[in-house]
């Protein structure tokens, strides 16, 4: 397998009951790239990502992440891969029994290479990450005191704690006003520069796709129907693809 290929998904299938959601998806992510997966709501974008980190078990297909077969990996190996991936959940998924600071501390305290750090060093990393996402003022707030956009920022800061090599953004701008969405888009670009991470951004927000993507794929009816740069796809003659750009 090529070295610069971070994710390789082949022929992925997943059904719930008799409802087929993913029907033969191939997907690749290369080092340093921001890949956007565009698709309508409910087409199974989150399902693909959850299969990649094995929160869900696909029915068929293979998934390699960092060259390892995720579906065959043992618990230890799987966890090693997971610590190299940052995952930003749709609603941020902050632990609501902990303050923002404790949210960031939680994965760090339970991870071999960060556990050895002193509290002071750890606090410095926490502050640096919160500063990166522009949330340093909320460090001692509780999740219930944060707005939707702030929750996503805090969730992002938390997923940066383990210095991931790639980040999965699950609908980073959904449910946010245009102004906040723009700020999040800028943030995604900034994080890539600052932390040198690759990213998969799943969204149905065409503006977010244009701003953040190096490359883009379109998911429709459980299949990838287009793959290319944003401008190329916008100019594509395919009727089905055109629908996504109206």
């Amino acid at each position: 397998m090529e070295n610069n290929r971070i994710i390789q998904v082949s022929n992925l299938h997943k059904s719930f009951g008799d409802k087929t959601v993913i029907n033969g998806v191939d997907l690749e992510l290369f080092a340093g790239e921001n890949l956007v997966v565009l698709g309508k709501s409910g087409t199974g974008k989150s399902v693909i990502m959850k299969c990649i980190v094995r929160l869900m078990q696909p029915d068929a297909g293979t998934i390699h992440v960092f060259g390892t077969d995720v579906l065959k990996a043992g618990e230890k190996e799987l966890n090693r891969i997971r610590t190299r991936i940052g995952y930003l959940f749709q609603e941020g998924a902050l632990y609501d029994s902990m303050s923002v600071r404790e949210n960031l501390k939680f994965p760090a305290k339970r991870n071999a290479h960060l556990r050895r750090l002193s509290n002071k060093e750890l606090d410095e990393i926490i502050e640096r990450n919160l500063e990166s996402v522009g949330l340093i003022d909320a460090i001692d707030k509780w999740p219930s005191e944060l707005s939707g956009g702030m929750k996503k920022r805090a969730g992002l800061a938390r997923s940066l704690m383990l210095s991931p090599e790639m980040i999965i953004y699950d609908e980073p701008t959904t449910g946010l006003d245009p102004y906040t969405s723009d700020a999040i888009n800028d943030l995604i670009i900034k994080i890539r520069e600052e932390y040198k991470t690759a990213a998969v951004i799943i969204t149905h927000d065409i503006k977010c796709a244009r701003r953040t993507s190096d490359r883009m794929v379109i998911l429709n009816d459980g299949k990838i129907i287009a793959n290319g740069k944003f401008e190329e796809l916008r100019a594509a003659p395919d009727e089905q693809v055109k629908l996504f750009f109206i």
Partner: peptide, 21 residues
């Protein structure tokens, strides 16, 4: 409610063993 809001999933993907915690 932690399951529904994906907090348990978030622990799982950061390799922090939600069952144990």
């Amino acid at each position: 409610s932690m399951r529904v809001t994906e907090q348990i999933d978030a622990m799982e993907v950061s390799a922090t063993n939600p069952f144990n915690y």
